[in-house]
Design a protein around this nucleic acid. Structure first.
Lengths: 221, 221
DNA sequence: TCACTCAGTAAACACCTGTCCACTGAGATG
DNA sequence: CATCTCAGTGGACAGGTGTTTACTGAGTGA
């Protein structure tokens, strides 16, 4: 037996409880941001939606902007992990493109609020949040670049012979296209499956066009 | 001679004066939005920066959101006119791509606040503003499509033989790339010409890759 | 068991917000 | 000239804001 207090049954341990209300604050802010932007939501508003006192907020974040930075980590950090695991399971084929868009669509459906937040605050009014998002997206582009150089994907273009700047050029284009596609999916009315299908179709064609351009890139210059 | 009052010399006519303060409100809001987002700036804040009474605001707009919609028209409406005149003066050549990026860079320098506003509010917290921006960007894509189909530009791809949906697919990609490039230029520090040069270089390559993909598009499918 | 830590509470603070109201006075009209 | 219009004024209203200060009381460790 452990001489510490045994695992609590219905009562929560202290760091557990703290993490719980912290998460409640994050969730509350995220749901408030479905309609409005981060810099317009107030500290009191968040705490009210989370069911705690305004002053309790300061136990977790110094201000709302810092909460925003934490939200970026939650949203894009988890997404990055997901993508990494998914990408490892993919075979190299031309269908990777359609599959990628499909996976993105599914992710947007499952984590609608997360993507809304990223799209909204990417160029939003809070510098710290903008910087955090830019940093994460840069990581996306960098990881995609190493994957492409390792010929894990897309088979067609010989990315391993590309110079680094060109590789980053195309991966950042792809990442930006991903973000834009997510935003387009969010703008499409959720009730109309037809509108969403058109967005998905257009996005697939665009991504295919990009890859097609990459396939013929080496022959130029 | 006109029996109406003659043209006022130093005194302003009434609709002139009204248009003047309206413009002051628009400018004030725009300059406030360099640091913050539309939904976070207050009515009083705008009027204070414009040098008028809070209640005077209602003579021009019912609320701040409506002012935002008017701002969209001011920003993208004028830009659309500018682009149209510029595009007519361009010869069809491969240098059109670099020239386009150059023109965009210049426009961003000259109307920094306008582009910031568009990038910030494109997916921002005000639905009416989002809709207005989406509408304008759609017009951009449509006009670019007709220009490409009329083989005014880019010479290479035979856009006149493309089906409409594929044409819009590629023009919307280009327009989105344009917006993203503008945002990247704004994020780059204004004092470092080197950082800006890198953004411009990457954007040019990306646009070239897109056109390259379009050039080989017809051979597929 | 007992003292301690610290997440969350409660009240009060000065300040800012959007909107209503009656009012003024310069430009327009006949 | 007298009259009307209406952009902009100034004050007041109720209500919300971020932050401070002193406090409570459940989880914790020796």
């Amino acid at each position: 037996m452990n001489h510490r207090h045994p695992a609590p049954l219905d009562r929560l341990t202290r760091p557990e409880q703290k993490a719980r209300t912290r998460q409640a604050l994050l969730d509350a802010a995220l749901s408030l941001m479905e309609q409005r932007s981060l810099s317009s939501i107030g500290l009191r508003e968040v705490t009210r939606a989370a069911g705690v006192t305004p002053t309790a907020f300061y136990r977790h974040f110094p201000d709302v902007d810092s909460l925003g930075v934490a939200l970026v980590d939650e949203c894009l950090g988890s997404l990055r992990a997901t993508i990494r695991t998914v990408r490892d399971g993919l075979s190299s084929s031309d269908e990777v493109i359609n599959r990628s868009i499909g996976i993105l669509t599914r992710q947007v459906h499952d984590h609608r609020e997360h993507f809304r937040f990223i799209a909204r605050e990417r160029h939003g009014g809070v510098p710290a949040v903008r910087a955090a998002i830019a940093e994460q997206l840069d990581l996306f582009a960098a990881e995609l670049a190493t994957d492409l150089a390792g010929d894990k994907l897309l088979g067609g273009p010989q990315f391993d012979r590309w110079i680094a700047t060109d590789l980053r050029m195309v991966t950042s284009l792809i990442v930006n296209h991903m973000v834009w596609t997510a935003a387009a999916l969010l703008d499409a009315p959720p009730d109309s499956a037809d509108a969403e299908a058109r967005v998905v179709d257009a996005a697939s064609r665009q991504l295919r066009l990009i890859v097609l351009g990459a396939r013929h890139w080496a022959t130029e210059d």
